[in-house]
Amino acid sequence: MCELLAERRTARGWSQDDLAARLHAMSGNDSVTREEISRWERGKRIPGPYWRSWLSRVLETPCAELELAAAVTRRQRRLAESTG
Rank of each mutant, 00 (worst) to 15 (best):
C2D: 12
E3C: 07
E3Y: 12
E3W: 12
E3S: 11
E3P: 09
E3D: 15
E3M: 11
L5G: 01
L5H: 05
A6W: 07
E7D: 12
E7R: 15
R8G: 00
R8P: 03
R8D: 03
R12P: 05
G13V: 05
G13W: 02
G13C: 03
G13T: 05
G13N: 02
W14L: 08
W14D: 08
W14I: 02
S15Y: 06
Q16L: 02
Q16R: 15
Q16P: 06
Q16A: 03
D17M: 11
D17W: 12
L19Y: 07
A20V: 06
A21R: 14
A21Y: 06
R22S: 03
H24T: 13
A25R: 14
A25K: 14
A25N: 11
S27F: 03
S27L: 10
G28V: 09
N29P: 08
N29A: 12
N29C: 10
D30K: 15
S31K: 10
S31G: 06
V32G: 00
V32E: 02
T33G: 01
T33Q: 02
T33R: 02
T33H: 06
T33W: 06
R34S: 13
E35V: 12
E35Q: 15
E36T: 15
E36L: 15
E36H: 13
E36M: 15
E36A: 15
I37W: 08
R39Q: 13
W40M: 04
W40Q: 09
E41I: 02
E41Y: 00
E41L: 01
E41H: 03
E41Q: 07
R42Q: 13
R42H: 10
G43M: 05
G43H: 06
K44M: 07
R45C: 07
I46A: 04
I46D: 09
I46E: 11
I46H: 06
P47R: 14
G48R: 14
G48L: 07
P49T: 12
P49D: 13
Y50H: 14
W51Y: 14
W51A: 07
W51T: 06
R52T: 05
R52H: 02
R52I: 03
R52E: 04
S53V: 09
S53D: 13
S53M: 14
S53I: 10
L55I: 03
L55M: 05
S56N: 06
S56M: 08
R57G: 05
R57W: 08
R57Q: 13
V58C: 04
V58L: 01
L59D: 01
L59V: 02
L59M: 05
E60T: 03
P62W: 03
P62Y: 01
P62G: 00
P62A: 00
P62K: 02
C63E: 14
A64F: 04
A64W: 02
A64R: 09
E65S: 01
L66P: 02
L66V: 05
E67R: 09
A69K: 06
A70P: 00
A70N: 01
V72I: 15
T73V: 12
R74A: 11
R75P: 00
Q76T: 06
Q76E: 15
Q76K: 13
R77P: 00
R77H: 08
R77G: 00
R77E: 06
R77W: 08
R78V: 04
R78H: 09
R78S: 04
R78C: 01
E81Q: 15
S82F: 08
S82N: 09
S82E: 14
S82H: 10
S82Y: 06
S82C: 04
T83E: 14
T83Q: 13
G84D: 09
